[in-house]
Design a binder for these strands. Sequence first.
DNA 1: ACCTGAACACCGTTCAAGT
DNA 2: ACCTGAACACCGTTCAAGT
Lengths: 181, 181
Amino acid sequence: MRRVAQALGVEAMSLYHHVEDKAGLLDGVFELVLGKLPPAPRRTTSWQRAVKERAESFRAVLLAHPRLVPLFATRPAVTVESLRHVEHSLELLKAAGLSARASLDAFQVVVAYVVGHAISTVRDPELETSGPDYAQLDAADFPRVTELVALLPTHDLDAEFQFGLELLISGLERRLETSRR
Amino acid sequence: MRRVAQALGVEAMSLYHHVEDKAGLLDGVFELVLGKLPPAPRRTTSWQRAVKERAESFRAVLLAHPRLVPLFATRPAVTVESLRHVEHSLELLKAAGLSARASLDAFQVVVAYVVGHAISTVRDPELETSGPDYAQLDAADFPRVTELVALLPTHDLDAEFQFGLELLISGLERRLETSRR
DNA sequence: ACCTGAACACCGTTCAAGT
DNA sequence: ACCTGAACACCGTTCAAGT
């Protein structure tokens, strides 16, 4: 509060005439950022592509505000603004053939994945140093980890995200196929 | 630091003779909790069951310390202790037929999902009230959300977690099947 | 080697007083 | 209606001084 006030050239206490408290201010930030989500497109493609597009948009918004990712991780998305997106996503899943319950599950699961992965993406790389030196590891004891360390420099977190997203969608696909029989 | 010291019946500054700083203390907590992960079992079942079991164990440890979940969300797991689990998981995936790169992707993706979902599980339910009253929503404007609200009271977050986990595993399965051809 | 007290530079928030 | 200053109850951390 004190720093926000300072940035506005005003005293900290003045803010309390515009927001309830710190949580209220964060609510505002939350809704503001969520408002950057591109509007739900009219249904023109497959549900697979639509789910993918929604998840990617969400990720893009999160990565555009790395400092806010922990906020999204802690705060539930229940503003009116965000409910419009929820509605669209649930509609999408139901139209694909999922039950109401399964749509809820699928939606929550994808959101959890996007947020969880965003966290690992924006993680302060400086923190990595606090761990043990990878170089000091006995390569014989940790063959797979050693292999992994060699891969890290060229590792693409966006590709990794895509990979997991496609796993989820492909899992849903298979589930729909078997339930239709 | 001040409260930890107080709980130990000592002055805050005394802690600095045992840990570097607050981050160092959190590192210790982190490793301690991670140590509660059941040891990697010998390979006796399918990789599907093994991946599922590892993810469920990780979730159980997280949920046993709800206040620490945000810590796990922010801090990378690079203690020697945790690397043993990483090694085991990567070995598991490679033995299932994934390349080193795909194993890394799969591992990270599952961890992101477990952490992301744990966050939504331990989210302070008191926060939900800060959103708009679901009751005040126009049911005609939000048919799917209205449906969802009716489902919430009987919604099982553990079942939801299982659902997503199985999607990921089933997605991996399909990927392996098609790549083998 | 380990602990301590005072001090510094921060927080969010209450409350009474100003315009 | 909006802003302010002083004050309260907190933080993590530095530094010099104690045993």
